[in-house]
C-alpha cells in the first residue's frame, strides 16, 4: 500500500525558497501570484495491509522524522 504525505512550512515561518519562486513567477508575468509556500511530498510504500494502521504508522514517522514540527506541518493524504 502506498501512503502519501505532504510536509509544508508552518504559517508564519519564513520560507525564503517559496518567496524566491513567487518573485520569479511575478517577473514571468504571473502577476496574480501573491504567495508561494514550498513543501515536500513523500510516497511511502508499506507492507501493512490495513489502511488505518498504515496511516497511523506514517503519522508516527512524520512526528519522528519526516517533518520538523517546530517549523513544518504534515498532512497524510
Amino acid at each position: 500500500m502506498k501512503i502519501k504525505v505532504i510536509v509544508t512550512p508552518k504559517n508564519g515561518v519564513l520560507d525564503p525558497q517559496g518567496k524566491a519562486i513567487q518573485q520569479t513567477l511575478n517577473s514571468m508575468n504571473f502577476i496574480d501570484v501573491s504567495d508561494v509556500r514550498q513543501g515536500k511530498y513523500f510516497e511511502i510504500e508499506t507492507d501493512l495491509k490495513d489502511e488505518n494502521d498504515a496511516k497511523k504508522n506514517v503519522e508516527d514517522m512524520c512526528k519522528k522524522l519526516l517533518a520538523n514540527l517546530v517549523i513544518e506541518d504534515y498532512k497524510i493524504l
Binding site: 515561518v13 519564513l14 525564503p16 525558497q17 524566491a20 520538523n68 517546530v70 517549523i71
Partner: peptide, 16 residues
C-alpha cells in the same frame, strides 16, 4: 536541533 537537545530550528538563509 534535530535531536531536540537544543531548542529551535535552522531555516534556509534569508537571501538564499
Amino acid at each position: 536541533i534535530e535531536t531536540g537537545l537544543v531548542t529551535g530550528a535552522l531555516l534556509r538563509n534569508k537571501y538564499l
